[in-house]
């Protein structure tokens, strides 16, 4: 064990960098997830330009360990901490940082009084993008099927906006507002619901569009429409999030026409910029900072 420790000592001495620059810790349980890696890449790239020492800590899914690592970073006296985890679950760590006067910035983390600012995508804006896409695409008239999920707040806000957009077109009728069964991921439950609706509305053109608050119901609706042999009726489908499966469907030029991509790298970059502002002593009054999203259609789906 002694030899091991000596060995460790060499490794650590080589690994540590002189701590003259600003020290910033990024702590997440979710580094293995693709989205998180983009956030962190965006953050570290900008941090490098700013000359910071960034310590990325992954707790491999362990939320309790996030608290421990925040406490360790507070003990170490870092200049700022960035988290990518629900702040409500790491309140004990946030309190330790607040007591030590160390600012905490969230990267798509959720809002909390102890988080100086949370950097994320604007769910309201994303829903507006696809809802007006649908309304414009069907010429402001026809029956629209909505897939929403109100129990989950980030998705609930999307539904509210789509409601408002469709209500503003007198000739658009919302045929049904479906909350799909999501226990299997959302595709199968949405497909079953869509199949029932297609059966209830057999006339071609009786369903003009499907607006889904995220991609899985859109994919389920697409499967139902194709299986029912009604792919050539011109039913317009939109989703949100632009996951790989959705991009693939959009690129194929079928009924699934549009989705919205979040700028994960941009969220990381903006988080670094926000940390820089806090470190410079600038007041950051916006507790939630939105990074623009991008509409994905066949023109740019690849």
């Amino acid at each position: 064990m002694i030899r091991m420790t000596a060995c460790a000592m060499v490794t650590l001495t080589l690994g540590s960098v002189s701590a003259m620059a600003q020290d910033v810790a990024v702590i997440t349980p979710y580094l293995a997830q693709p989205g998180t890696q983009f956030y962190v890449d965006g953050f570290t790239a900008r941090a490098q330009e700013l000359g910071w020492n960034v310590n990325v800590i992954d707790t491999a899914g362990d939320v309790a360990a996030v608290i421990s690592r925040i406490e360790d970073m507070v003990t170490q006296g870092v200049d700022a901490i960035v988290i990518n985890v629900d702040p409500a679950q790491v309140g004990a760590g946030l309190q330790a940082a607040a007591d030590a006067g160390i600012p905490v910035v969230g990267m798509d983390a959720g809002s909390d009084p102890l988080v100086a600012a949370n950097i994320t995508s604007n769910g309201y804006a994303m829903a507006a993008e696809t809802a007006v896409y649908v309304a414009n695409r069907i010429g402001g008239q026809g029956n629209v099927v909505m897939f929403t999920f109100d129990p989950f707040p980030p998705v609930q806000v999307r539904g509210v906006i789509a409601d408002a957009v469709f209500a503003n077109f007198p000739d658009i009728t919302v045929l049904d507002r479906i909350t799909p069964d999501v226990s299997d991921g959302g595709i199968a439950g949405s497909r079953a619901a869509m199949e029932a609706l297609l059966a209830a509305n057999p006339a071609p053109g009786s369903i003009a569009a499907v607006w889904a608050a995220w991609d899985q119901p859109a994919l389920g609706a697409l499967q139902a429409i194709e299986a029912a042999g009604r792919a050539n009726e011109g039913i317009v489908i939109t989703g949100i999030d632009a996951n790989p499966q959705a991009r693939d469907a959009i690129a194929q030029g079928g009924n699934f026409e549009a989705s919205v991509a979040q700028d994960f790298v941009g969220i990381g970059t903006t988080a670094a910029d926000t940390v820089a502002r806090l470190l410079a002593g600038e007041p950051v009054v916006q507790r939630v900072i939105y990074v623009p999203t991008r509409l994905v259609t066949i023109a740019n789906a690849e």
Partner: peptide, 29 residues
């Protein structure tokens, strides 16, 4: 080990490997 290595900014994956090696070394000895 967790606390100290985190404070020394040792990469979190390397940290796991080192903790495993230390367990093996001490139990092995």
């Amino acid at each position: 080990l967790d606390n100290g290595l985190t404070q020394m900014r040792v990469d979190s994956y390397l940290r796991e490997v080192m903790v495993g090696l230390i367990i093996l070394t001490s139990v092995g000895v």
